[in-house]
């Protein structure tokens, strides 16, 4: 055995925000943003269902579709994202249901959380650990991640809508949110 010193080939970032960020609180009267994508129809269905529930509770909802990751498209996307974040009070960012789309979801969620908005990323079960890992590597280990069952996009619409129904309450819990003051007090 010949002992000696070797140099570490790895590089890591040191900064981290371990806080989950502010609770979303009472949602009635607030502007809720839901980020959708161009891949997962199941996420479109769930977002539509949750948007209806939130609006019924007195919130206003805006959907923003993240699509295009390079070139002029990326320039447009960055501008749109910044503007969209300025116009909302709470961000729901999905869907982490593949490798790159988990990366993009978490990246946009970190962008939202970094502005101080109450933010939750939405992932499917298979990508739960990955979403947390990418969030930590992105300097935001405390990012809230709400987890939906997997596989999801492979389900029939009626099954997906059942998931939306089952997960609306738990989503609010993850966000630290309630629909109205009275309900929060209970």
């Amino acid at each position: 055995m010949t002992m000696g010193k070797v140099l570490d080939p790895t590089s890591t970032r040191d900064d981290d925000v371990a806080s989950p960020g502010p609770d979303a609180g009472v949602l009635a009267g607030k502007r809720i943003g839901i980020r959708v994508d161009n891949i997962w129809r199941a996420w479109d269905w769930i977002s539509g269902d949750w948007a209806a529930k939130l609006e019924q509770a007195g919130a206003t909802v805006s959907l923003w579709r993240g699509y295009g990751r390079s070139g002029e498209d990326a320039d447009r996307l960055d501008r749109e994202l910044r503007e969209w974040l300025k116009g909302i009070d709470v961000a729901i960012i999905g869907l982490a249901n593949c490798g790159s789309c988990t990366g993009w979801t978490v990246r946009d969620a970190i962008a939202a959380a970094s502005t101080g908005l109450p933010t939750v990323a939405v992932a499917t079960e298979n990508f739960r650990a990955f979403a947390h890992e990418i969030a930590a590597r992105g300097g935001r280990s405390g990012l809230r991640v709400h987890v939906l069952p997997y596989p999801l996009n492979e389900l029939e619409q009626v099954q997906v809508m059942a998931v939306a129904e089952q997960h609306f309450g738990p989503l609010l819990e993850t966000m630290g949110a309630s629909l109205e003051q009275r309900e929060a007090a209970e």
Partner: peptide, 23 residues
Amino acid sequence: VSRRHEADLDFEGFNAFAMEKGW
């Protein structure tokens, strides 16, 4: 400026060390 690690520099030893480190 990279961190220095004390390691076995022999073929088997270093490669086992590097794998353990995930390098």
